[in-house]
Design a protein around this nucleic acid. Structure first.
Length: 558
RNA sequence: UGGGGCGUAACCGAGUGGUUCAGGUAUGUGGCUUUGACCCACAGUACGUAGGUUCGAAUCCUACCGCCCCAGCCA
């Protein structure tokens, strides 16, 4: 739904205008991925734009169309993954699922029409020769010697191209436009090439395949698309888009509008580069939780709502830009803070014994699942004499501002008791291996009946009840904000982008953690069960994002 | 030296002649707190540059500067 005072981006303004003037009474957009790889967060921007518009205006729809005109790169696996990703993001194309390959026959007929009307010809130049004849950015091109073949000869040749009479790459069909155009796309662009490759949908029915610049406008027009939204690099192609439709007997002429693609700091958003990360083993696969792919992000624990929110917040404009990843994290935290149930988990455990607590006693304490939202209920957490706390929550020689545990200091155990550190046990190497504390029985639940202020509250688990877990901490994949601009992006990979903690201990309720759910490990961050590597007796948690940590910042500057 | 675009604070991004340029993020400072979280309050720097038109310009004009894209039988 459109909010009344929400400022519209320039594309929505064009649409508003087209509706107001009566140019259109219904709006049709489309998301046209090529099934040659996995969708990433950059695609999310386009999906949210196209499907978002469809959701905002009353008589509007958005098509999902696979741009499958290059069978050498495209696979059914990608088609399936893309559909799953779009659905996961929360969008529904209903009956409007299309493939450019659905139009192969029509595309072919239109090509014959272009030939018949003298606007296309079969060219026998080799690839190298075509490049040579094309000229350069500053010099005009030269006309192909095959440019002025008769309509009959062109038609015959083109039909024989389709029939398979010629070897791959031996001939192409070209548009006859203008070899001297300053816009290189208009220098007789290739429309069809001979390619003996099996297509995921049409199999071996074709040995010629149409090019993007020819296919796209026609596909759009056949589907009645009103606004064809694409990224900035296609701006130069718009004249060809329009030329194609102007020379064909198609009544519909969609308007192509270009916007800036999404760039995100500390990551790369390019299929080619992502593919390299996968191929060179820098990540575990397309769905590695550090990848900006939708599958990676999903596995990491990002929510569709956060992603959609992010896409609306970054806006749509024509300026090249790099959005800070902090904004994405903010959107995520905002959603997770509101919706994730709180639990306690100790990532790097330090044993703590409460010396004045009875040996065999086990208490059951009530903890809130969400302090700001009582409707999410409570749970019981077992408490006993031996506990584990976070190593980082104890310092033998703490600075003044450190208000966690230290020798002789008091701290609150979340939902449990106020304890005081009485003794430190070290091993022979001098490493602290255990803390001996006393508890104040009057503070059960964490309250202080005497009104004394306890600044620090830390999380804990009961030693005999805790569940052992593997926890994977992720950090940004690159060390530089703009890895794409600094030479080879592979060289600024962050070596610490993944840290595996094998001895984490989580509260017993997490033994029944649900796949696909987000949890907040209090004071740590948001986590979710890894859907791939979790085994029945071996839970694996991915850290989706940390909590904001002001202390870490203060601590760093000191 | 060709063609197409873009320049508003640290980062996105509204604004299209009229009081001291929305909003968000980031940053900083306070407050609150049984998560150093959340939340709340406050703070700061911007219209690429130079001219011009105008009572008045980020908005109009001119020139300049900077950045991005294009020479696949990829999309």
């Amino acid at each position: 739904m459109t909010t009344e005072n929400a400022s519209h981006d320039f594309i929505r303004k064009i649409i508003d205008d087209d509706l107001a003037t009566g140019k259109h009474t219904e709006i049709v957009t489309r998301f046209p991925p090529e099934p040659n790889g996995y969708l990433h967060i950059g695609h999310a921007k386009s999906i949210c734009l196209n499907f978002g518009i469809a959701a905002e205006y009353p008589t509007t729809r958005c098509h999902l169309r696979f741009d499958d005109t290059n069978p050498t790169k495209e696979e059914q696996e990608y088609i399936d993954a893309i559909k799953a990703d779009v659905r996961w993001l929360g969008f529904d194309w209903g009956d409007n699922l299309f493939h450019a390959s659905d139009y192969f026959e029509k595309l072919y007929e239109f090509a014959e029409h272009l030939i018949t009307t003298g606007h296309a010809y079969v060219c026998d130049l080799t690839g190298d020769e075509i490049r040579e004849y094309r000229g350069t950015l500053t010099e005009p091109g030269r006309e192909s010697p095959y440019r002025n073949r008769s309509v009959e000869e062109n038609l015959d040749l083109f039909r024989r191209m389709r029939a398979g009479d010629f070897p791959d790459g031996s001939r192409v069909l070209r548009a006859k436009i203008d070899m001297t155009s300053g816009n290189i796309n208009m220098r007789d662009p290739v429309l069809y090439r001979i390619l003996r490759a099996s297509h995921p949908r049409t199999g071996d029915a074709w040995c010629i395949y149409p090019m993007y610049d020819y296919t796209h406008p026609i596909s759009d027009a056949l589907e009645g698309i009103t606004h064809s939204l694409c990224t900035l690099e296609f701006e130069d192609h718009r004249p060809l888009y329009d030329w194609t439709l102007n020379h064909l007997p198609i009544p519909c002429h969609p308007r192509q509008i270009e916007f800036a693609r999404l760039n995100l700091s500390y990551t790369v958003v390019s299929k080619r580069k992502l593919l390299r990360l996968v191929k060179e083993g820098k990540v575990s696969g397309w769905d590695d939780p550090r990848m900006p792919t939708l599958s990676g992000i999903r596995r990491r624990g990002f929510t569709p709502a956060a992603l959609r929110d992010f896409c609306t917040r970054i806006g749509v404009a024509k300026k090249d830009s790099i959005v800070e990843v902090e904004l994405l994290e903010h959107c995520l935290r905002e959603d997770l803070n509101e919706n994730a149930a709180r639990v306690m988990g100790v990532l790097e455990p330090l044993k703590l014994v409460i010396t004045n607590y009875p040996e065999d006693e086990v208490d059951s304490l009530t903890a809130q699942n969400h302090p700001q939202n009582p409707e999410m209920g409570t749970r019981q957490v077992p408490f006993s004499r031996e506990l584990y706390i976070e190593q980082a929550d104890f310092m033998e020689d703490p600075p003044k501002k450190f208000f966690r545990l230290g020798p002789g200091r008091e701290v609150r155990l979340r939902y449990a008791y106020i304890i005081k550190c009485e003794e430190i046990i070290k091993d022979e190497a001098g490493t602290i291996i255990e803390l001996r504390c006393t508890y104040d029985p009057a503070t059960r639940g964490g309250d202080t009946p005497d009104g004394r202020k306890i600044k620090g509250t830390i999380h804990w688990v009961s030693a005999q009840h805790a569940v052992r877990a593997e926890v994977r901490l992720y950090d940004r994949l690159f060390r530089q904000a703009d890895p794409e601009s600094e030479g080879d992006f592979m060289e600024c990979l962050n070596p610490d982008s993944l840290q595996i903690l094998d001895h984490a201990l989580v509260e017993p309720s997490m033994g029944m953690a649900e796949p696909g759910r987000n949890y907040q490990f209090e004071r740590q961050g948001y986590f979710c069960l890894d859907n791939k590597d979790t085994q029945p007796a071996h839970p694996v948690f991915n850290r989706t994002v940390t909590l904001r940590d002001t202390w870490a910042k203060v601590n760093k500057t000191v």
